[in-house]
């Protein structure tokens, strides 16, 4: 079962959905915090993250999905989404999960672009952390460039408009108002340069290894962080960047099942 609620600081209200079992025996000592990707990817993948959280919760591990401030049901306008704000949201979501889940520790999962704010937040920690990065986007400059490219394609090359062309407003990206401050902050982030606490453990669930992932893994290992990778079934790799698929939902069922089995320790990493 799941329970929706608002939490957060006065003036900065966040929407959360806690998945779990009323009675879990034995009670889990840890919980799972799931971080949604930004902009349209967040909308497209919502049900996949919900399904993963629900499966993990039903297994007895409390799992929380939440909306960043300025997104989904949380307070604020879309232009109010900022990197410092997301770091604050993560701390509050984590505290809320510890309290409601009645657990002593939290593991983290980030999908796509959520990897960047999550890693930036966890860099500030002292104690080791456990993280799952699902199809992560680790180079902020490339991420922002790809968003801008997708935006142009939506306006010009997706068949969205019939016999007419439109220009977007200033500060508009992929259907949302996005501040320059957010784009600048993300562009400056390179996950390979983020120093996670020594002894941390990172698992990457990916469809394909690439240079960014490889560089990230090498740098983290050099800093005393364990990094493992699990390859997902290539056959259901989402078409994230195909313009005509932009409005469609993304729900790679086998990947969700694979992740759920590993998050609940039914299958070893």
């Amino acid at each position: 079962m799941s329970a929706p609620f608002f939490f957060g600081a006065p003036g900065r209200n966040l929407f959360g959905l806690l998945h779990g079992r009323e009675e879990a025996h034995p009670a889990s000592k840890h919980a799972l915090l799931l971080c949604a990707p930004l902009l349209q990817d967040g909308i497209r993948s919502h049900r996949a993250l919900w399904s993963l959280a629900q499966t993990v919760g039903e297994f007895g591990i409390p799992a929380l999905t939440f909306d960043w401030y300025g997104t989904g049901d949380s307070g604020g306008q879309d232009v109010e989404l900022t990197l410092p704000g997301m770091l604050d949201d993560l701390e509050r979501a984590c505290a809320e999960l510890l309290r409601r889940g009645e657990v002593s520790s939290v593991q983290f999962l980030a999908l796509r672009s959520a990897a960047l704010p999550l890693l930036a937040a966890l860099e500030r920690r002292v104690d080791p952390v456990e993280i799952v990065l699902w199809d992560p986007q680790l180079d902020g400059a490339k991420l922002v460039a790809s968003w801008k490219d997708q935006h142009r394609q939506q306006l010009d090359g997706s068949g969205r408009y019939v016999n007419v062309t439109h220009e977007s407003d200033e500060g508009e990206l992929l259907g949302f108002g996005v501040s320059d401050a957010l784009l600048d902050a993300l562009s400056a982030l390179d996950a390979a340069h983020i120093r996670l606490p020594q002894g941390s453990r990172v698992r990457m669930a990916i469809w394909e290894m690439n240079d960014d992932l490889d560089r990230f893994a090498r740098e983290q290992r050099a800093g005393g962080v364990s990094v493992e990778a699990v390859l997902l079934d290539e056959g259901e790799r989402p078409e994230w960047n195909v313009p005509s698929r932009f409005g469609g939902q993304v729900f790679p069922r086998r990947a969700v099942a694979q992740l759920a089995q590993r998050m609940t320790a039914q299958v070893p990493w």
């Binding site: 079962m1 799941s2 329970a3 929706p4 609620f5 608002f6 939490f7 006065p10 003036g11 900065r12 209200n13 806690l18 779990g20 079992r21 009323e22 009675e23 879990a24 009670a27 919760g57 409390p62 307070g75 306008q77 309290r99 409601r100 889940g101 009645e102």
Partner: peptide, 25 residues
Amino acid sequence: MVNLQLDEKTLENRQEFAPARALAG
């Protein structure tokens, strides 16, 4: 045990917030 009960109990599960300030437009 997971605390799925909400702070404010009503017939339906419910939690409330008021926006700190108005949204433009």
